[in-house]
Design a protein around this nucleic acid. Structure first.
Lengths: 339, 339
DNA sequence: TTGAAAGCGATACCAC
DNA sequence: GTGGTATCGCTTTCAA
């Protein structure tokens, strides 16, 4: 089947390619009519012919000529992970509303990969970029910014980057909420289990934890495990903590929580009996386990949708807030009891 | 910052645009040298200039002229879901090896959406399409096939579609394995809980279940719930089953399993005490719950990688197997006991 | 309201 | 090995 181009449609409809282009790009106005300087009857004929011939616009040609692509890129660390996968879905749906196609990529927490991905997506003439920065990824982001591509930071902040949009969680507040919930229930020896990753969301959650502890005259302590190979260390972290008399953990990510629970199972430790837990993000594991697990919920839908909205307004040069800080929510659970 | 084009590089390096194009498209051979008909010294100079100027190929222009895009599209029902999210990740990584950029989209089990997505991605001149078909999606697939875009069916088969590649699980075998595991443990009244979706993977799992039951002279029964609103029905399904004296469930998807477990929790039913369970796919919930849950594992990595490999060979017109049927694996668990 | 024609930035073909 | 140039399909100006 030969490819149908705008020319074929024009010839068949007996009009110029210009007209066809107008019609194909016209948006349907509120009155249901096409808002373009074309005779409605002509437009209807063009539409009919286009449909009959099976015309499909060549995105490459349109993009080449116009410099726009109606495409945005989303670079998270891993679409397979629940948090970013969930957000991605909302991004996808919201983008569709604006008529954007989305390129999703995973950086794997790796700055070099991020750099390569940015090069790739910039080659696509993307109209904008939503990105969850990784440690050392500043240079990659600068490239996009220098190319005048609007950038929205998602989930993680990077300081001193001018002109970028931001859609973040109030992570300090999240850390505080989790910690104060535990303190309110009577826990005193509370530690945080974390990755040794330099990521704003994680370090801010730690900051919130520390502030809450210090506000109650309690001593804070963060146990870190390596992001690369956390499995090995976890049992030791827990063993040492128990020996120190730790009563509860605040765990700032789902993946860490799964590790903690796995290690606790192996050590025949139970929550809340042996250790109170406040986890992060959502999981069936929290809802459906033997004891439900208290956790901090991020508004995935808002995170996803807002990031697209902010990006869109940047692309369209609309004025408006380009930094959005969203509120976490605490979901109580059986992993925390009154003491 | 002005956009750097191939022309700028050519001028600066004192060569023609042709040469630059050659160099930029050359692959590094095994000996570390560029395999293109260009003087190595010239090539080195071009490379240096390109880098210095920050040249980035314009994918739209390349695609327009060459008719290829080095882009493939992947349409699953939902990237946010664990199964497709996991596969997507492997697809992404494998695609990168071949130099493909990937467009991920979600059809939401909706044929109209699939149709629109196919139109969109075809406009991108994609080199190939990996798709998990949805009920009623045949027409959409035909469009791609008519446009001579290689198509690989993932996870779900569609009959009588010529010329497509397929990467599937042996779902009949999976249903059999699950059922025979239960039968071997002494269970007799075994039912399957399923969606009312006409999808080959699910109906084949049911077929496997039925065959295994019938091979042992047992009566099969499939309880279905609606895909749109399964939550409501689940408690009733379980209640009725218990009243019928059902001893175990075979559940062919993760999402259904989460629903079953949730409903069982609410009804204060426990596995394996009240009901044996064999679930599908992987989840921390199976590993880390109060009692581990026996389940059938699909080889996500292979599913993802093979689908890209098959698609690639179709794109390159290489001969080779275009239908791959992968083996499921059974992971025993505490949700099934000897009876 | 309509159309002619100039490019967008690559690649592909052909000539040298 | 190297270079000139037509061309991919569309959008965009400009003129009618």
């Amino acid at each position: 089947m030969k490819k149908i181009t705008i020319k074929d449609v024009a010839r068949e409809a007996g009009v110029s390619v210009t007209l066809v282009s107008f019609v194909m790009n016209a948006k349907v106005g509120e009155d249901g009519r096409l808002d373009c300087p074309v005779n409605p009857e002509t437009a209807a004929r063009v539409l009919e012919v286009a449909k009959r011939l099976g015309y499909r616009r060549n995105a490459a040609a349109a993009s080449l000529r116009s410099g726009r692509s109606n495409t945005i890129a989303v670079i998270t660390t891993d679409i397979a992970n629940n948090f970013f996968g969930g957000i991605s879905r909302y991004i996808e749906d919201k983008s569709a509303q604006y008529g954007y196609t989305v390129l999703f990529c995973s950086s794997d927490e790796n700055a070099d990969k991020l750099d390569a991905l940015v090069d790739t997506v910039l080659a696509y003439n993307i109209d904008g970029l939503i990105v969850a920065p990784v440690p050392g990824g500043r240079r990659a982001l600068s490239k996009a910014i220098e190319s005048r591509v609007p950038v929205v930071l998602l989930d993680r902040d990077v300081e001193d980057l001018d002109g970028v949009g931001k859609v973040l969680l109030n992570d300090i507040e999240a850390g505080k909420m989790a910690t104060e919930y535990l303190i309110g229930k009577g826990y005193r020896k509370i530690e945080m289990v974390s990755y040794d990753l330099d990521i704003s969301s994680i370090s801010e959650r730690a900051e919130g934890y520390r502030r809450a502890m210090s506000a109650h005259g309690l001593e804070a302590r963060v146990d870190t495990t390596s992001y690369g190979d956390p499995q090995k260390l976890m049992p030791n972290i827990i063993k040492d903590a128990i020996e120190r008399g730790v009563e509860a953990f605040f765990i700032p990510t789902y993946s860490l929580t799964a590790l903690v629970i796995g290690a606790m199972n192996e050590m025949h430790l139970r929550t809340p009996r042996d250790l109170g837990l406040v986890a992060f993000d959502e999981s069936d594991l929290y809802r459906l386990g033997p004891s439900t697990i208290a956790h901090i919920v991020q508004p995935l839908k808002e995170l996803g949708e807002k990031s697209v909205e902010v990006l869109h307004s940047m692309i369209e040069n609309e004025p408006g807030e380009t930094t959005i800080i969203l509120k976490p929510e605490l979901v109580p659970g059986g992993s925390v009891t009154d003491r």
